[in-house]
């Protein structure tokens, strides 16, 4: 690695920044009222607290409304092609372990055209942070059903209702061997920031599903669960080491049932019967069961960190092989390489 590639890195002497330092000079051009604004604000406010350098931070995106995100961050950034951000970010993160690489995309971008890259990024566990803005619709192409749209969804491309079963992104991620999976929503800045920070700190691929409102093509998709007056009864906060409990009075909880989990009334089963959330549990089946509590976000839905396990970062292992081969056999010598097959002299 040339010196140029690793200019004065390290976490010491990181200049103090404010939100303004992380804002680019580009005019933000999402529709007024879009949930993307609150996500952008949450992240721009969080970045000064992470103790990182702007020049060491890269946002990579694909195509879609969410994918405009990099233009608005005063960092390095690439607005690439539809679905491919995880692949491009993988190459960048492998090449440059000194960088913090973020991927931002929507449900069409990351789960549909880019689904293959997502699952392979998750299984490899390379150190990138994926923010999945899920609005259950194609916005930039003006309102077709997406891979997270509910069955029966009426859109321009499904005038009498979509016939397809949607992905549950958290279930998909856990099934793809993800080591860090979280969910949050665009109505709660502090929760978003907590999840983004946890994702940043996680060594390996982290994915955060953000329920995001598209007020033009799918307005109110998450209102049933995220509106202030219903939130307490409809969102199930997952807190590591604590019994899973929710409701305005804490009257509901989650308990094990028939190999899975179910929602119970605390008064009926007692506090001791509640499942204590263990995000670090190596076996993913409980995290998966939690992700199945709500098939669609119209019933009580868990938010928070489903799973956070440390299982070795891919890039470190791959670069380790490069170093290992150099250590075992010495740095490469081009002349020796060219003479490594049988030679003869004329």
């Amino acid at each position: 690695m040339t010196d140029m590639l690793l200019p004065d890195g390290g976490i010491e002497d990181v200049p103090t920044t404010t939100r303004a330092d992380w804002q680019s000079n580009q005019e933000v051009r999402w529709c007024p009222g879009c949930g993307d604004y609150s996500i952008l604000t949450a992240l721009q406010l969080l970045m000064p607290d992470l103790g990182v350098r702007r020049e060491k931070t890269v946002f990579v995106s694909g195509i879609g409304c969410a994918a405009r995100f990099p233009y608005y961050m005063n960092t390095y950034g690439m607005h690439s092609i539809h679905g491919r951000a995880p692949a491009i970010a993988t190459g960048l993160a492998l090449a440059r372990p000194d960088l913090d690489v973020w991927v931002v995309g929507g449900d069409g971008d990351i789960l549909s055209i880019g689904g293959n890259h997502l699952i392979h990024a998750l299984r490899r566990n390379i150190d990138i942070n994926i923010l999945l803005f899920n609005n259950q619709i194609y916005g930039l192409t003006k309102g077709q059903f997406s891979p997270t749209s509910e069955r029966g969804k009426v859109t321009k491309s499904s005038p009498i209702g979509s016939c397809a079963t949607p992905f549950n992104p958290v279930s998909l991620a856990i099934g793809a061997e993800a080591s860090f999976v979280a969910r949050t929503h665009d109505m709660d800045r502090h929760h978003m920031q907590e999840m983004f920070k946890r994702a940043y700190e996680h060594p390996g691929t982290s994915i955060v599903e953000v329920y995001q409102n598209c007020n033009v093509f799918n307005d109110g998709a998450f209102e049933t669960i995220t509106k202030k007056d219903v939130r307490d009864d409809m969102l199930i906060p997952l807190c590591h080491g604590e019994p899973i409990r929710f409701g305005s009075e804490g009257q509901f909880g989650v308990a094990r049932y028939d190999g899975g989990v179910e929602i119970v009334e605390v008064a009926e089963v007692g506090v001791d019967a509640l499942l204590v959330h263990d995000e670090a549990r190596v076996d993913p089946s409980t995290a998966f069961a939690l992700s199945r509590l709500a098939e669609n976000p119209d019933r009580p839905t868990p938010v928070g960190v489903f799973r956070a396990v440390d299982r070795g970062e891919y890039g470190e292992a791959l670069r380790g092989q490069v170093d290992q081969m150099a250590t075992d056999r010495g740095e490469g010598d081009l002349r020796a390489l060219l003479h490594s097959l049988p030679t003869w002299t004329v």
Binding site: M4, G91, L92, R96, H117, A326, R329, E331
Partner: peptide
Amino acid sequence: QKRFNVTTFQAEDEIAAVGSALGAAYGGL
């Protein structure tokens, strides 16, 4: 030939193969 500071990445498909190479090029490799 990794000891020549060569990283090889067997990608999940042809698109990710070129995408990762482009990402690395963006990073200065």
